[in-house]
Every structure is written in structure tokens, then in C-alpha cells.
Write a protein that binds this DNA or RNA. Structure first.
Lengths: 111, 111
DNA sequence: CTCACAAAATTACTTTATGTAACCGAGTAT
DNA sequence: ATACTCGGTTACATAAAGTAATTTTGTGAG
């Protein structure tokens, strides 16, 4: 019956909703290096299917994080890049990297 | 046929795998305020089911992020709290909050 | 001890999200 | 025309998450 005592900040909630979807963070991470084509992203993240990549890119474009650019060249070329909003996620990635380096242990196979 | 050109840091990958699971970040966020009981976490995050909360807490405990403490009181009390590793995620949360405040727009209902 | 109670977890079942692979469509090259 | 590439979708199969009932564990009442 009682409402939640501690409401979350709606922006924070929205951000989490976006970022904690499977693959989203890794796609953004890949795009931090620069613009990439559909194929390149798909090929660089194993187990990521074209179907889901397509969905995620649409969501990210809709959210203003990713920009889709069509280059009308010989074979038309489509590139995905980060907007300022997307590049604003860089410090976040650094935090994750830093935290992971400090705390995550990778298990070596025992021979 | 060709292997991926840019391998991800395994620690980074592991961190993302942990943190980008649905609910994980929000559970950790709630625990940043201090220890909480199962019921309290469940009640404070709408749509989070007890089943998944149970799974996530086990994963987080396994990963060393969350500590489960049993207090043998009148009705036994079980509290979940963050370890140092878990508290190490605080800056990340702050970054997300900062990014969200800067970039996320919340749509108001039009009357 | 047996019964009832409460919180923490689990189980069975339904719904949603993701993975797989085949296919479409536009543009080029042969 | 034929075949090939890239971006994208569709149909179908599997895995993850939501719902609600149930079990477990430990208390206290009788």
C-alpha cells in the first residue's frame, strides 16, 4: 500500500534504463574510438547479433547518444558515431575500467 | 574467420557483464545509503521481483560486492551491505547521476 | 511439542528479451 | 542478368525476467 520511501531521480532512473540494457555500454565503448560501420561493431562484439545491434543503435539514436550518418558514395556507406551526449559517457567508462582494474580478478585456468 | 581486431580488457568485460545485468546497478545504488533488508530493497524498486532480487544478491555476494549478514534476533534479521569493492562503485554512480542531470530530458505530460 | 507467524528464498508457470539463421533491397561489379 | 556486399528485417528457438503460490527457517504462544 505505502509508496516507496526513497524515490529515485527520474533522470538517473532513465539513464540506468538506457545504459543497463545488454550491449548498450559495449556499443558506446566501441564508438568512443571513433565512427564505425554496422559490420565493424557487429564483428567486434562476439555474440552480439545483427538484430539486437540494429535495435540498440535505434534506441541510442532516439536517445540522442548516437548519430547515424549516410555517406552517398559508390557503395553507400553508413557510419555510427557518438554525439556530445554520447561522448559525455567517456568518464563513466573510465570509472568502470578503473574499478575493474582495482577489484576484478580474472581466473586463470589451472593446468 | 578473422578474430576480433580490438580485444576488450577481460576485467572491463567482466565488470560490464556484472553491472549491466538488469537491476544490479539499482540494487547497489540502494545499498550505498547503508545496509538494507531483503524486503526493503524489494519494496523500494518497483517491478523488481523477489526471485530476481534473490538471484542478483547471490551474484553480487559471489562477486564480492555485497555482504550478507544474519542477525539471530527475535524474528531473524538478514541485512545486505556493500563491501569495500561495492563502495568502490560510488564514483561511478555519481558520474551516472551527473551525466543524467546534464543530458537526460524528462518528458512532462502535456495536459 | 504443535501451531501460527514472519521474512527470506525457491518453485511452477507466463511473458518478454535475446540468439540464430534465412531472407530482402539497394548498389556494384562481372 | 547474375552474383556479391552491406544494412536491415523476419520467423522461429532459447534464455531471462515477472507473477504468484509455496517452502524453509527461526520465533514465540499455547
Amino acid at each position: 500500500m505505502a509508496a516507496e520511501l526513497n524515490q529515485l531521480c527520474p533522470r538517473f532512473e532513465k539513464a540506468i534504463e538506457l545504459l543497463s540494457k545488454r550491449w548498450t555500454t559495449l556499443i558506446v565503448y566501441r564508438l568512443l574510438d571513433g565512427p564505425r560501420r554496422f559490420m565493424d561493431i557487429e564483428g567486434s562484439l562476439s555474440n552480439l547479433s545483427g538484430k539486437v545491434l540494429s535495435e540498440r543503435l535505434k534506441e541510442l539514436e532516439e536517445a540522442g547518444i548516437v548519430l547515424r550518418t549516410v555517406y552517398p558514395e559508390k557503395p553507400v556507406r553508413i557510419e555510427y558515431s557518438l554525439t556530445d551526449m554520447g561522448r559525455g559517457l567517456a568518464p563513466l567508462m573510465d570509472d568502470i575500467q578503473g574499478w575493474a582494474t582495482r577489484w576484478i580478478k580474472i581466473e586463470q585456468e589451472q593446468s
